[in-house]
């Protein structure tokens, strides 16, 4: 029971990281891929949007890591070993994304300086979701056991699709949220520019998701059967969320669009957790390899108490910077 709750807590953190942190990476991806075409006002809205929240959004990742190694230390050790390369890439991306963001914001105003850190910011923002996506794809394809522990393969379809899908999803989230930010600023050019990008990225992400489903169905992994038997309602929620976000963007219901996009990404991420349950690294490590109950209970108690402080603080942060002006 305690292990199941800890498993749920880990996946909650992963899901919120995808929905909130993912958009921050997505903003960086847009900064990179539209480098020559992004207008100064678009770039300003992009950096203004992530500025107050990116560090808080980043902590969901720390949280997922800490909960995993505390509650499921054996799985954590196996995952960090099997995912050595993508995690190093993701980590490098995280370092340069964060550093480049502040260097760009507070450094010398000379054009060369800003350009250098902007490019660094964009490349790093793309590298991290690509690496995490590849890691997720490799886990989806399933691990094989070797004498020195579980091994994951990256040179096959699912990790490649996973990498691209993660980047596309981040870009989609960012563009939907930025459309809403444009509306909050009352800027019609921002709304139409980001809405166009949101639809484009959403279509790409949807296509890659279908490819991923096909590739997963072709293999016979624990994850694909989990999705088939158990997590399919969440896939439907995800598809409905994506469709709703498109419609809401058209209808200028921007908060609904942002919520629906978050639901689309969040439900598929949470659905992964449901489909993969009780495995942390299928088919090798499950919640059976867990910390002693005293530890799990202490962790859950700490999480419950921490949430009492955390939830109102987060609500304050988002209300302060992310509420729509009343008209």
């Amino acid at each position: 029971m305690a292990a199941d709750l800890a498993y749920a807590a880990v996946w909650t953190a992963v899901t919120l990281y995808a929905v909130l942190g993912g958009a921050d990476f997505g903003a960086g991806i847009w900064d990179l891929v539209t480098w020559t075409r992004l207008k100064p006002s678009e770039r300003a809205s992009l950096f203004g949007a992530i500025g107050p929240v990116w560090e808080a959004n980043h902590v969901w990742l720390i949280f997922a890591i800490v909960l995993t190694f505390s509650a499921f230390p054996a799985a954590f050790a196996a995952l960090t070993t099997a995912l050595w390369v993508p995690l190093l890439v993701a980590l490098t991306g995280i370092v340069f994304r964060g550093a480049a963001f502040v260097f760009r914001a507070y450094g010398a105003e000379s054009a060369g300086h800003e350009h250098r850190w902007s490019v660094t910011f964009g490349v790093a923002s793309a590298a991290t979701p690509l690496a995490f996506g590849a890691a997720a794809g490799a886990i989806a394809a399933g691990a094989t056991n070797s004498s020195s522990g579980p091994v994951l393969e990256f040179a096959r379809p699912l990790p490649v699709i996973g990498a691209l899908l993660a980047a596309a999803v981040c870009a989609y989230l960012a563009a939907v949220y930025l459309t809403r930010e444009g509306a909050a600023q009352g800027s019609e050019p921002l709304v139409s520019a980001w809405r166009r990008r949101a639809l484009g990225a959403g279509v790409v992400a949807g296509g890659l998701a279908v490819l991923g489903v096909v590739a997963m169905a072709a293999g016979d992994s624990a994850l694909s059967s989990g999705f088939r038997d158990r997590a399919w309602p969440l896939v439907i929620v995800s598809a409905a969320g994506a469709a709703t976000s498109f419609a809401a963007l058209r209808l200028r219901r921007f908060t609904l669009a942002a919520g629906a996009a978050a639901a689309a990404v969040g439900s598929i991420t949470a659905g992964w957790g449901v489909a993969q349950y009780p495995y942390l690294l299928p088919p090798v490590l499950s919640t059976a390899d867990r910390a002693p109950d005293a530890v799990l209970r202490a962790l859950l108690a700490a999480t419950a108490i921490g949430a009492v402080v955390l939830v109102p603080s987060l609500a304050f942060l988002f209300r302060l910077f992310k509420s729509m002006p009343r008209t």
Partner: peptide
């Protein structure tokens, strides 16, 4: 990891509060 997980989890919360109010 399990033995020292609690202080790391609590640190996670402290860092979270810090990051929120820094923003």
């Amino acid at each position: 990891g399990a033995v020292i997980g609690l202080p790391f989890a609590l640190e996670g919360f402290a860092f979270f509060i810090e990051a929120i109010f820094v923003g």
